Amino acid sequence: MVEKRFSNKIIVITGATRGIGLACAERFQEEGAKICTIQRGKSELFESIECDLSKEQECSYSIKKIIKKYGCIDVLINNAGMMMESSIQDTSIEDWNQTLAVNLTAPFLLSKFAMPFLITSKGCIVNIGSIEGIGANPKHAAYSASKAGLHGLTRAIAVDHGKDGVRCNAVAPGWIDTELNEDFINTMPDSEHFRRNIGSIHPLNRTGKTKEVASLVLWLASSESSFVTGQVYTIDGGRMAKISLPSP
């Protein structure tokens, strides 16, 4: 029998009840990993810890609880995120702080608290960023800022802890078929028209699947990418490579 790549490895994933996080959990489980998820709600599929990721004490408690049960952490995947529709003029300081707390500060805290154990296991971190950390959609000031910060945090962790044998990378998904993006579509004046045409902004002429992102995350966490750290991998069907032209 061929040994699976993550047999008995402890994989911690935030926000794994749906979307990219759920796809990652399923993919790692297929490869033999033990999955522990952290998010507000309870996972019905995997062991989970209910946590308000915007609170430092709860982030610390979550890592301690995992260590108490498993004794180690091999991979941390910071996936949980939130997005609000608001221009910078209309963004309240409360919404700004909440977005950064979940999208940027929580990955910082979880990485900080998990780091001693990742050093021991020579493990790695994979952060789920966004192409909006590179560009921006309208009315996404807080979201874009948080994802750009997460890309920067990725590089900083890689630089500081490469000497400890810990790697840190990020993926920057484009338009992926997730509940979060479906909620965004439903805010459009003509959501059906938007849904039919969203694929056309990509050279591949379609949107992405959560499983495709999960496959990239799994590779970045595996020994196959052992010399890769401090990188942000765009997975967007070529969207960011395409120069826009006016409609004919």
Rank of each mutant, 00 (worst) to 15 (best):
A136E: 13
H140P: 00
T37S: 13
A25F: 04
I77D: 07
T14L: 07
Y143F: 15
E31H: 02
K69R: 14
T14M: 10
I93E: 11
P116Y: 09
T37C: 09
I119L: 00
S121L: 02
T154I: 12
A101N: 14
A101W: 02
T91D: 06
G19N: 06
E44V: 10
D74Y: 03
L45F: 08
N78K: 12
F113A: 07
A142W: 12
E94Y: 03
L109H: 07
I66M: 05
I13Q: 07
V126A: 00
I63D: 11
F46D: 06
M82S: 11
C72A: 13
N97R: 08
I38C: 06
A141M: 09
T99A: 08
N103C: 10
V126G: 01
L45H: 10
S87N: 11
A145N: 12
K68F: 01
I88E: 10
K68L: 06
A106E: 06
N127P: 06
Q98W: 04
V75L: 04
S111A: 14
E50I: 01
N78Q: 04
A16T: 09
K68C: 00
E47M: 05
D74N: 15
A80K: 03
E85V: 12
I128E: 03
S92F: 05
L104I: 07
G41N: 15
S92G: 15
K69E: 14
I131W: 02
I77V: 14
K68P: 00
G19M: 03
S60L: 13
E47G: 10
G152M: 14
Q57E: 15
G149H: 12
L100A: 05
S111G: 13
R155F: 08
A23G: 08
G129Q: 01
L153C: 07
G133D: 12
N79D: 10
I119S: 01
P107G: 06
C24K: 00
E44W: 01
Q39A: 14
F46A: 08
T120Y: 06
A145P: 09
W96K: 11
E85T: 10
E30F: 01
A25M: 04
A148D: 08
L109Q: 13
T99P: 03
R40W: 13
R27F: 00
K69M: 05
Q29R: 15
L109E: 10
C24S: 12
T105N: 11
G19T: 08
H140S: 15
T154M: 04
E94R: 08
I125S: 02
A136K: 10
D74F: 06
L53R: 13
L118P: 04
S146F: 12
L153Q: 11
L109F: 12
E50H: 02
A101M: 09
I35Q: 03
C51H: 08
E58L: 14
S111F: 09
I49H: 14
P138Y: 02
C51M: 11
C36G: 00
Q39C: 14
K147T: 15
H140R: 15
E26F: 02
S60D: 13
E94T: 11
P107K: 12
E132D: 14
K42Q: 15
E47A: 02
K139Y: 10
D90G: 12
F28L: 03
F108D: 04
K68V: 02
E44K: 15
A141Y: 00
Y143G: 03
